[in-house]
Design a protein around this nucleic acid. Structure first.
Lengths: 180, 180
DNA sequence: GATCCCATGTAATCGGTTACATGATTCC
DNA sequence: GGAATCATGTAACCGATTACATGGGATC
């Protein structure tokens, strides 16, 4: 069973949201998907080139006034099909998310409980901030009530993200309590 | 800010649990940590060699009866210090866990809602099985009435894992409901 | 002149997987 | 003889990051 390269599909997907250049793709992922996806220019530019070679996208040189020139990428019909094929392809098993917190918790007997607790409290604070960020984004989207077709799914994603973050906060608190 | 190689520390940690050989380390991770960590021999053996070179561990050739020879690794004092140093080192920010489910959800407008729902139902079933596995392991540990110093922390880890899994199941259900 | 944003790209390197190679021992 | 388990290792490859290189335009 060969593993598929998800980054290709992430880029394919982003190209349907109005982002057209490598720079914009990077910005979109850093700003909107940054809690569950990331990417570097070292991947973006070569991948875009490859997508064109495979006929999944086309490029157009675009001259801008007041800004540097840029290359705009557009999905082809074939590219859209490829995206849809990937979307409906089911997860056969859960990918292992390497979790540093759980790993450290597992080796907890090698340090004083209060040190583990401090570690968890620190992590919990970070999670709390993340949760608040989600809430902020959510209300921004709702207020702007943009008619963008993507918004609905963006909110689903945020909501799912909130569930996970809340659970992690709960897990931290619960563990801290047990360590006391 | 340079990123530290956590795999080294995972191996360092496992060496404190009674696992002594590369083979045993692999087994331990596959059997006990498989939901939040994984590793391959291609990492284990070179890393063990490196740990010895750095004075964090020592090797001993061990002849066994009825089984092939093996190499047993032991943490040095320096190795234990290194492990403790890593353990107490706080997370400065949350590492990005690339999440295929969230990514696909984000691009949901490109397919029929029922397709997205089927995808989520499938995922939810996988999560449910995982949750039951956690419960199974938990009761096994509790029944064996632990004298191992690690057991307590193993249960903390399991408990935390249950929180996260339960939340993901909740997130799936909630999203499915919204898609109806 | 300095700094920031926009914009594109590559080379070196790293972390990790996969596939391969080897071989002892036990159990059926 | 064949399969399963125990055991160690390497080379090729892949996905991704980091550091570097370049440069236009706007703003202060």
């Amino acid at each position: 069973m060969k593993k598929i390269n998800q980054t290709r599909y992430a880029i394919l997907g982003i190209l349907t949201t109005g982002c057209r250049t490598g720079y914009q793709i990077k910005q979109m992922i850093d700003n909107s998907l940054n809690h569950f996806w990331k990417i570097s220019y070292g991947q973006i530019y070569p991948t875009l080139k490859q997508l064109v070679e495979e006929g999944l996208a086309t490029v157009e040189d675009s001259v801008q006034e007041g800004k540097p020139d840029k290359k705009e990428y557009f999905l082809t019909e074939k590219g859209e099909e490829e995206l849809r094929r990937w979307l409906q392809f089911p997860l056969e098993d859960i990918p292992v998310n390497k979790n540093e917190v759980l790993l450290k918790l597992f080796f907890g007997r090698h340090q004083a409980n209060h040190t583990t607790m401090e570690f968890l409290i620190n992590y919990q604070e970070i999670l709390q901030k993340r949760y608040e960020t989600y809430e902020g984004i959510e209300s921004t989207i709702r207020m702007h009530s943009l008619d963008s077709a993507d918004d609905k799914y963006w909110l689903f994603t945020l909501n799912y993200g909130k569930w996970i973050t809340a659970a992690e906060i709960g897990g931290c608190k619960d563990t801290i309590k047990k360590l006391e």
